[in-house]
């Protein structure tokens, strides 16, 4: 089976990603013991004691094995600052980031698919040029800029949506959606432009294929050709790119969560980074990287269902 064939490469990537996370945070300058104790309490004896307690004096491979072993059982250690377990903090924050991320992708796809198809169907016309140049322009707008102008319009001028804050879904679903809408939109705009351009290009290619001409000759309606015949073969790169773009969304969520004051994983990482909370940084970075790898792996698998040629080995999927 295709999934099984790809499994070793997934495991290898996950191992490498965990190793890189560990090395990056362990080899960089700064003594965690000093961070924990603070400058005033840092007598040489105290530092030595903390280092021994954390196992910082062990050789690197031993430290890595300890860390990854604990991580596999869900134990990422405790925050140096708040003493909160890292895993609890992540589990607490993950739903927020996941919600705005998924909402952003859904909004982007809901707009990009019809718009991209229209643009391809009308290729070369004024409609197409308008759509193409608009999406080209949107690519040059950073997400924080989108966020500021959305806040200006919807929160400051119209006052219909909150500019900051978060309400849990379980507390009040409606308020939850209201607080998620602007952050998700801020992330969605750039994605939308990327998806639209991609779908347009692929769709134009598909519409030139013989089977589309054949369908036209048979008198199949335009709508049916577009949605039933052309959309699926045109959506392969869209899917892969949507997977790759999850990285942009995760990166963007750091900024957007900070701007909208949302309790998500992105802000958790930023706060941990600012105070150099080593174990927290390691844990969050690992969870983010692993989710990203797993998302792209899943996309690869889905892709093979949509395009059977891949699982039959005619095509080499991306690593």
């Amino acid at each position: 089976m295709y999934v099984l064939r790809r499994l070793p490469s997934l495991l290898a990537t996950l191992f490498a990603v965990s190793l890189l996370t560990f090395l990056m945070t362990s080899l960089l300058p700064g003594d965690p013991a000093l961070q924990i104790l603070g400058a005033e309490n840092a007598t040489p004896e105290a530092i030595a004691a903390v280092r021994a307690d954390l196992g910082l004096d062990d050789p690197l491979p031993v430290r890595y094995l300890h860390w990854i072993g604990d991580a596999l059982t869900g134990d990422f250690g405790r925050s140096y600052r708040t003493n909160e377990p890292v895993s609890a903090a992540i589990i607490d924050r993950l739903p927020v980031t996941a919600e705005i991320g998924i909402l952003a992708i859904v909004i982007a796809l809901l707009i990009a698919i019809p718009v991209g198809m229209l643009s391809a169907y009308r290729a070369g016309t004024r409609t197409d040029k308008l759509i193409s140049s608009t999406s080209f322009g949107l690519l040059a707008v950073p997400n924080f800029m989108v966020a500021i102008f959305l806040i200006l319009i919807f929160a400051v001028w119209l006052g219909v949506l909150p500019a900051t804050g978060w309400v849990n879904f379980t507390d009040d679903p409606v308020q939850n959606l209201r607080s998620a809408l602007l952050p998700a939109l801020s992330l969605a705009i750039a994605e939308m432009a990327v998806y639209t351009r991609l779908l347009r290009t692929d769709m134009i290619g598909t519409l030139q294929q013989d089977f589309v001409t054949m369908a036209r000759v048979k008198g199949v309606s335009n709508r049916r050709i577009l949605f039933r015949h052309a959309l699926r073969p045109s959506s392969f790169s869209l899917m892969t790119v949507a997977g790759v773009q999850v990285g942009a969304i995760i990166g963007g969520s750091v900024v957007i969560e900070t701007l909208f004051a949302l309790p998500g994983v992105g802000r958790l990482l930023l706060e941990a980074v600012l105070v150099r909370d080593l174990l927290m940084v390691q844990g969050v970075a690992l969870v983010i990287a692993v989710s990203y790898v797993v998302v792209n792996f899943t996309v690869d698998i889905l892709y093979s269902y949509l395009d059977p040629r891949i699982s039959h080995g005619r095509s080499t999927a991306r690593v």
């Binding site: 490498a16 990056m24 945070t25 960089l28 999850v246 750091v254 990482l269 980074v273």
Partner: peptide
């Protein structure tokens, strides 16, 4: 292989972690 591993990290996450410590 090395490059694909580095690309497995969202760029901004990698950047933040490096900036914080360097």
């Amino acid at each position: 292989t090395i490059i694909n591993i580095i690309l497995a990290f969202p760029a901004l996450v990698l950047l933040l972690v490096l900036l914080a410590f360097v």
